[in-house]
């Protein structure tokens, strides 16, 4: 890129960048969903992205593992630049775990098989080894006792914890969370957040699209506020919640916190 206008933000105390998004632009037809996004995430950084619906936050993190295609700008993940080449995309995806709003577990496979599938077919691990890794992570999300059940037999919170374990089984460098608690009953949100907080404490690089402001205050290194496809404000959580600079941010915060 020759015409660099604004230097990507770099967090304090960083060593090497894990994700570098530079002048990212994306359109759905004629609709400009992502406008000039610049974002650098360093290894071990925890980032919470919030904003009103339709602001492009999900679209942005979905670009990082190429579930969405962008038209302009560049994305580099763990030193690998994103191209249209399928092999390259699959290489990046192996390093990036993702957790979805609606869990997206494979309903025809047991919990254990869900966790083993990509280990066996992508990482070419022997089944026994894959199952061992899977049980390890299922243990960590405290659901090992349900390993032989089908997803449909579990509660929403349990399913989401399985989804987290499934992503972790690939030993990713980065985890993306796309509104992981939005589809859950209130009493199940905590069990999922606890797992995420634990993961954050272990030093996983995380990008979370979420409206759980408590989670943001506890673990985030940076909070990013998006609106109309652009990053409006980014700041450490104390600053973000106590002294939001932009008027839009203030309005948004007053709406979600002020009831």
């Amino acid at each position: 890129m020759s015409e660099v206008t604004a230097s990507p933000t770099t967090a304090p105390g960083s060593d090497r960048p894990m994700i570098e998004i530079d002048h990212l632009n994306k359109w759905y037809g004629n609709f400009h969903v992502l406008r000039d996004i610049n974002l650098t995430v360093t290894k071990g950084e925890r980032i919470v992205i919030c904003g009103p619906s339709g602001s492009g936050k999900s679209t942005m993190i979905r670009c990082i593992n190429h579930l969405e295609e962008h038209q302009q700008g560049s994305i580099v993940v763990n030193g690998v630049p994103m191209t249209h080449d399928v092999k390259r995309i699959e290489q990046i995806r192996r390093n990036v775990g993702m957790v979805f709003q609606h869990f997206n577990l494979f309903p025809h496979l047991t919990v254990l098989e869900n966790c083993c599938l990509s280990q066996i077919w992508v990482q070419k691990k022997p089944r026994a080894e894959a199952e061992k890794t899977a049980m390890e992570y299922l243990e960590r999300v405290q659901i090992a006792d349900q390993a032989l059940k089908y997803p449909g037999q579990l509660s929403g919170g349990q399913q989401q914890r399985v989804a987290i374990a499934r992503a972790l089984c690939m030993r990713p460098e980065v985890m993306l969370f796309d509104e992981p608690t939005s589809a859950l009953d209130p009493e199940m949100i905590k069990e999922v957040l606890d797992v995420m907080i634990e993961l954050a404490h272990e030093g996983m690089t995380m990008l979370c699209v979420t409206h759980e402001m408590g989670f943001a205050k506890t673990v985030a290194d940076r909070v990013i506020f998006m609106d109309q496809g652009q990053i409006i404000e980014e700041a450490p959580p104390t600053e973000f919640f106590n002294n939001p600079r932009s008027e839009r941010t203030q309005l948004f915060l007053s709406q979600i916190l002020g009831h």
């Binding site: 579930l67 290489q91 995806r93 990036v96 775990g97 979805f100 990509s118 077919w121 992508v122």
Partner: peptide, 14 residues
């Protein structure tokens, strides 16, 4: 649902 395909993609499956 397209979520199934996306979950597979996110796991790096071809």
């Amino acid at each position: 649902g397209k979520g199934q395909n996306e979950a597979g993609q996110a796991l790096g499956l071809s």
